[in-house]
């Protein structure tokens, strides 16, 4: 197996699984953590990740197919998403090659797709837990908006609007801190989200507002 990438908590190896291009996500032990804590977090995250990927696929959300799981070595064998870029890289390339106004215009359909996909996900009570633009891929020509969600290690199933609201809050913060001047895109994401998560979005958006106000040291009147 060839080491392809090393993320914050997993090594990604490339290999093939009975002839299919496959990546192996190996959660390695973190030597800074207490061994008991480390073991429990790692096991919990491998389980959360495969469960959420499976559930997403059942709801029609594109995620890599899980081929095999080895709990002892904390490895998930999954489909390699060929010909894909992260949403992060794509937004950066659009923002650097176009004027601010044009960039927003180009990225609006993508924001729509993101919102739509997250709406479906939350409707199924899947909370991702770590929504960032690095954890979303675009397969094929980016302008086709074939969106694939990855990195479900912090995910869980929950019907509470609080957790869904925090999920969106995490995305908002990640989006705006990584890509300055994308506030408009987040609004597009929310609009599309409300359409696809038609039953619960009202409560979730109300919670999102509440969580935003919770942020420490935020300027507020009254």
């Amino acid at each position: 197996m060839e080491l392809w990438k090393q993320g914050a908590e997993a090594k990604i190896h490339k290999t093939d699984f009975y002839g299919k291009p496959c990546i192996v996500k190996e959660r390695f032990s973190k030597s800074y953590r207490h061994p008991i804590l480390d073991k429990s977090l790692t096991a919990q995250r491998v389980k959360s990740e495969i469960r959420a990927m499976l559930r997403c696929r059942m709801s029609g959300i594109l995620t890599p197919t899980v081929y095999f799981v080895n709990m002892d070595s904390s490895c998930i064998y999954m489909e390699e998403m060929l010909d894909s870029v992260t949403v992060r890289d794509y937004i950066q390339s659009v923002q650097s090659s176009k004027t601010a106004v044009e960039a927003i215009e180009t990225l609006t359909p993508l924001a729509n797709t993101i919102g739509h996909t997250l709406g479906i996900m939350h409707k199924q009570n899947i909370v991702h837990g770590d929504l960032t633009t690095s954890n979303m891929l675009l397969q094929g020509d980016p302008s086709n908006n074939r969106l694939c969600l990855i990195d479900f290690g912090l995910s869980f199933f929950e019907n509470l609007s609080e957790d869904k609201g925090v999920d969106l809050y995490v995305l908002e913060r990640a989006l705006i801190s990584t890509h300055p001047n994308t506030e408009k895109l987040f609004n597009v994401i929310l609009e599309a989200y409300c359409k696809s998560n038609d039953t619960g979005s009202k409560d979730v958006i109300a919670k999102l507002e509440e969580v935003r106000m919770r942020g420490r040291k935020r300027t507020m009147v009254g």
Binding site: H34, G129, D130, V166, V170
Partner: peptide, 13 residues
Amino acid sequence: KFLELPYVVKGMD
């Protein structure tokens, strides 16, 4: 002696 405590990480928060 390690006592397991609630561990709450939400994305980067």
